[in-house]
Amino acid sequence: MIEMLSYEFMQRAFLAGMLIAILASVSGTFVVLKRYSMISETLAHSALVGVAVALVAGYNPLWVAVVVSILSAWLIEYLRSAFALYSDAILSILLSGSLAVAVIIVSIGGEFNNSLFAYLFGSILSVSGEDIATIFIFGFIALFLLLLFSKEFYFIAYDEEVAKTSGIRVKLLNYLLVTIVAIIVALSIRIIGTLLIGALMVIPTIAALQYQVGFLRTSLLSVIFAVLSVIVGMTLSFYFSLPSGATIVLCVLSIFVLSLLINKK
């Protein structure tokens, strides 16, 4: 552990990883309770469109990913409220659409190479100082907003209509939540990767729900599970040269399976 942290890039990756774990699990709780788990997968693929554009055009991939992911989140929320479409259908349509666009852009640009691969599966080795700065700036804004409106998000997740009739600006807050989720998803793809970020958002909460405790404890449990998975996952990935994202996901999955077994009736 000490040896590992003597590398500057590992210190950075750890810090960023833990921030992302906190963000993913806190926002994930609301997303899961709203039965909206798939949104993280879809937004991750939209973020990939941003990465593809940035790789081809030579911009900072993380920034463009954040922007495209937010736009996609707004489109999802708009489609969900304006048309009588099933939300899971909207999510899968946008997921495949985004992936198709990303692949086409990259193939036109002739850049379908290792750098895109790093975004698909996450690679801590590729995290630059600039990336860390981006992750921290956006990450803290997202965390601030999540905490600021946590009681509103909780109420909305419980019952959107009752929340509305008690004076909560449901529509606005729904847009805000998907925007926050979009930011978090885009930020995480460096470390966890597009294909795996959904797991870090959803699984810690599902694991925490097995303990059948109130809201505060459920949120705390899911944060602990996510942070623990990131620490253990990154350590294992460092010592055994495994891909970071996949290792983290396997850790969180183990916690989930354990939670299931512990709480088996």
């Binding site: 309770l33 009681k151 909780y154 109420f155 419980y158 929340a163 008690s166 925490a208 729900l209 059948q212 405790v213 109130g214 809201f215 404890r217 459920t218």
Partner: peptide, 10 residues
């Protein structure tokens, strides 16, 4: 994940 108290506090 809500206790009776969590709900009333909403």
């Amino acid at each position: 994940p809500a206790t009776a108290l969590d709900i009333v506090r909403m």
